[in-house]
C-alpha cells in the first residue's frame, strides 16, 4: 500500500530503464484495450451502425438472421396453430405471416395496431385470388390471455379468422423462446399493462423474419409479404 502508489521516479535504482520498459508495456496494454473496446463496441452496435437494440433487430432482419423457432400457438377458437416450421416439408401451402405482438387488455398502441390490421384484412379480403398472406396477432401475456380473451380481442377488432388469427403460445416456455428469438421485449408499464417494442414482422414459411415494419407502415409490410408469398409459391 505504501509503495505501489508511489511515483516510480522515487523507487529503486536504474529508474530510466525500468521507466522506459514500463512505458512500452503500458502503451501495449492501452493499445490492446483499445482493440478490445473497438471489437466489443463493434459487435454490440452491429459494426458501429446501430446504437439501439431496435436498430440492431432491424439489421438482423434485413440480413436474414432473425428467425422464430417453430412455435405452437393456441388460437382464439382453442385449436393449436403452427404457423411456420424450420423443416421444409410443412403440411399444406406455405404462407407468409404478418405478425404483431399484443396483450388483449392493451388500450393504447394496440388500438392503432388493430386499425392497421383491419385495413390489411380488407385489402386481403378484396384481393381475389388467395395471395398466400395471413395476419397473426400473438399475445405474449400467456398467463392471463385465455382463449376467451383472445376471442374477445378478435371480436373487438372484427378479425375474420380466414385472414386474421389471434393466438398465444401454448405455454410460458414457448412464449419466452419465441420472444427471445425475435428480440421482442415486453416490460411492465407500471399500470398493470406492458410496454413493448411493437413492429410488424413479415415472417416466411420457415420462420425467418424477412422484414420489420413500423406500425404505421402496414402498406409496405403487406406489399413485401405478397411478393414473398408469390416467390414461395413459385419455388414450390
Amino acid at each position: 500500500m505504501t509503495s505501489d502508489t508511489m511515483p516510480s521516479r522515487l523507487q529503486g535504482t536504474a529508474p530510466s530503464r525500468r521507466e522506459s520498459r514500463a512505458f512500452v508495456a503500458t502503451l501495449l496494454a492501452c493499445a490492446t484495450m483499445l482493440v478490445a473496446f473497438a471489437a466489443a463496441a463493434g459487435i454490440l452496435t452491429g459494426g458501429f451502425q446501430s446504437w439501439t437494440y431496435e436498430e440492431l433487430r432491424a439489421r438482423r432482419a434485413a440480413e436474414g438472421v432473425l428467425a422464430a423457432p417453430a412455435s405452437a400457438l393456441r388460437g382464439s377458437d382453442g385449436r393449436v396453430l403452427q404457423p411456420w416450421s424450420s423443416t421444409a416439408a410443412s403440411a399444406g401451402r406455405p404462407r407468409v405471416y404478418i405478425v404483431d405482438f399484443v396483450f388483449t387488455r392493451c388500450a393504447t398502441v394496440c388500438l392503432s395496431l388493430g386499425t392497421g390490421y383491419q385495413q390489411m384484412q380488407r385489402r386481403l379480403q378484396n384481393s381475389g385470388a388467395d395471395p398466400g398472406v395471413r395476419l397473426l396477432s400473438i399475445s405474449f401475456d400467456v398467463e392471463r390471455d385465455q382463449s376467451a380473451d383472445l376471442a374477445g380481442y378478435a371480436r373487438r377488432h372484427a378479425a375474420d379468422p380466414a385472414w386474421w388469427r389471434v393466438a398465444a403460445p401454448v405455454d410460458a416456455d414457448q412464449n419466452r423462446a419465441l420472444l427471445r428469438a425475435l428480440g421482442v421485449v415486453a416490460i411492465p408499464d407500471g399500470a398493470g399493462g406492458f410496454v413493448h417494442n411493437a413492429a410488424l414482422h413479415v415472417i416466411d414459411a420457415q420462420g425467418r423474419v424477412r422484414g420489420l415494419h413500423e406500425l404505421g407502415a402496414w402498406e409496405g409490410a403487406l406489399e413485401q409479404a405478397r411478393q414473398l408469398a408469390a416467390a414461395q409459391a413459385g419455388a414450390q
Binding site: 466489443a40 463496441a41 454490440l44 452491429g46 446504437w51 436498430e55
Partner: peptide, 14 residues
C-alpha cells in the same frame, strides 16, 4: 473506454 461502452443504449439492452 468501459464508461463509454456502457453508455450505449444497445449495449445496455444486450
Amino acid at each position: 473506454l468501459v464508461s463509454a461502452l456502457w453508455m450505449v443504449p444497445a449495449a445496455l439492452d444486450e
